[in-house]
Design a protein around this nucleic acid. Sequence first.
DNA 1: CCGTACCGATCACTCGCACAACAATTCTCG
DNA 2: CGAGAATTGTTGTGCGAGTGATCGGTACGG
Lengths: 409, 409
Amino acid sequence: MTSPRRSGLGTNQEAVRRHNLGTLLRHLHGAGHMSRAELTSLMGLNRSTIAGLVAELESLGVSERAVPVGNVRQGAGRPSAGVRIAADGPYVVAVDLGVDRAVVARVGLGGRVLQRAQAPVHGEGEAWQVGSSVAALIRSVVADVPPVAPLVGIGISVPGMVRRSDGLIRLAPNLEWHDVSFGGIVLAALGLDIPVSLANDADLGALAEHRRGAGVGIDDLIYVSGNVGVGAGIITGGRRFEGAAGYAGEVGHLRFNPQGRPCHCGNRGCWETEVGAHAIAEAISCPADKVAQLDEVLEGFREPTPGLRDTGTALGQGLASIVNVFNPQVVVLGGYFRTLFPLVRAEVVAGLAERTLPAPLESVTLALPGLGSDSTLLGAAEIALEPLFVDPVAALGSALLDVRTALAG
Amino acid sequence: MTSPRRSGLGTNQEAVRRHNLGTLLRHLHGAGHMSRAELTSLMGLNRSTIAGLVAELESLGVSERAVPVGNVRQGAGRPSAGVRIAADGPYVVAVDLGVDRAVVARVGLGGRVLQRAQAPVHGEGEAWQVGSSVAALIRSVVADVPPVAPLVGIGISVPGMVRRSDGLIRLAPNLEWHDVSFGGIVLAALGLDIPVSLANDADLGALAEHRRGAGVGIDDLIYVSGNVGVGAGIITGGRRFEGAAGYAGEVGHLRFNPQGRPCHCGNRGCWETEVGAHAIAEAISCPADKVAQLDEVLEGFREPTPGLRDTGTALGQGLASIVNVFNPQVVVLGGYFRTLFPLVRAEVVAGLAERTLPAPLESVTLALPGLGSDSTLLGAAEIALEPLFVDPVAALGSALLDVRTALAG
DNA sequence: CCGTACCGATCACTCGCACAACAATTCTCG
DNA sequence: CGAGAATTGTTGTGCGAGTGATCGGTACGG
């Protein structure tokens, strides 16, 4: 479900055109609306070349002309005609699979959420049950999509380890899933056969924050997601760090306190036993059945408890290992850390400074997600959109038109 | 001293030619000797195109025709004329700066070591003293280079943290250097002005093992270097993982045992206090003044001592964190681990299996360096050669001809 | 011994981008 | 208020890079 990696191939002219068209669309996707003049300077190509590429995108129905937008005019000269994302252009379906709920959205280019729906899913539900719930949500978000708009694919964020080669969910501890082909289940429930991409939620959070959130323009960032488990998504050099099989970023099981609590992985004192949802809940004496609503509970606090302060210190100290090892420019704190961090910022920063080496410490910043709780959902949209940026013509050629009819038939 | 990162630029025809010429040379560098037919299928380009590129490389003096090499003929047909690296072609100078000695080599394309020299350097020597020793070694390895052979640049492997933006050595604990511009020092001692690239030794070990050692064809590997400190070099997706400023891979300070020995970084129980050279020396009761010769001492053992077994277990358990976080396909054990690992293989494997998550564990392999103790030296050569693969014409255009005269004048 | 297979060399062809000239539009300065 | 400067879109031309077909050369195999 993911394209194989490129080898040391040569480049021919066809590839040049594909690459340039895809890069132009990537820029448009990033900015949403821009002038041809901006594109010219960004891509370093000739004006005429940009004009040709823009014309091709328009004929593909991806972009449309816009009036010379009345933004700040910085100088003399003929105003540059705008290029903007077409209203009925290509879109994807993004699925954010959580432990207790699923969020589904129809997302267009530019990361615009066009429709959204969500529903609770049972914690220990069978995969096929969850799959049919998700399929129902997908049907609802595409209920009033215009027939001319092409569906490029589906992206799914999973709270677990996803094998890159085929998108198989190897292990989702909190869903109690082992080796589930969730992409196939959803497609079967829909009766469709379109591209489906799956990836780990933290990886997708990192991707979305890099493209549209707190990490725009930052090529080396880490998104640390605090939920029941703790995971990290890594962006390096502007690319996703996936590892050999797609499992990279399992920072939750870093050795933190060999005398600590037992972890479900079989060891003791893994970092996530000190800063995961259960540890946070314990620090604020939150009853076990309210751990799923930990966000709301945490928001009730104006001052941290001593237990929370300790959790904050542990969070900072664990982040120190991550910063030492990855040397990121920004660390984005997602999941429950998003509400925890503002409460115990001082302790986190102190724990980080205490254990990080001077050189990597001086260039790192801690940040909250710029996309709030939508990071993973928008990350799922990004991986589904990706084929458009590699080869727009091919991706649109294989996209699905008139989804409502296809779903009805 | 390192080229800036590429942004989302477009591709023009000039870039295509550069890229194809560089890619062809990269293949030739990897295989040393190949037929045009192989190049055709590897790069996916037309025969005529390959012929044109090969002709250009020949006119640049980089490659030369070889007789249809008498290797295994797999089928009928006219034998494909060979392409091989030119005898008097471009070369680089590689420097492996160790704690107690420096190795300098003249290295040609294909990673061939053409000349080599080494000398002891004082542990706490001033940087300029070490620089002039290295300069003398460089003079000796280029003493009988033919005048027509161009010198592309110098690559230096450093046992410390190197800032990527300018090659500044931020910290080399065992040399007791802070913020040393060693590249500039060496150039000044030589009286030359040519490109110098510096990088961390573990990073370069990883690069060399990926290109020419135990990791050929492996796109996700980690080279863990055990010396006085412990560091890691990471290759992901076939690229170096450097982090925002170049400091990525500092695994030696991963938290291992919070009640453990104090580390020079100010914390307690960092992993390198358990598996670094001093810990190994302690495990075998090696006197402190022989730590520099730990390799030879270790080679004297046929059976591991109980202390070494414990070190092996700690090594495996620490590697587990690395495997969980990076999900590599291969972990190469360099430095002192190269002699330690065969002694305590069982303990390392057991420690790794005990603490690694099942999914990343199933795809990882432990390996010894395919290049022996030359990994870092050849990695230094690789970064110096890199400009040739990005743009052969430009790199050769700015290369230095007739080095002997330039050094004399 | 001859047919087949494979490779190198050559040349016309296609395609994509760069360049130059011109038109359109706005700003600025006198 | 008007002319020139500045910037951008448009169009046609040219260059360069890779493609594809053809021919000739060399080896293998029956």
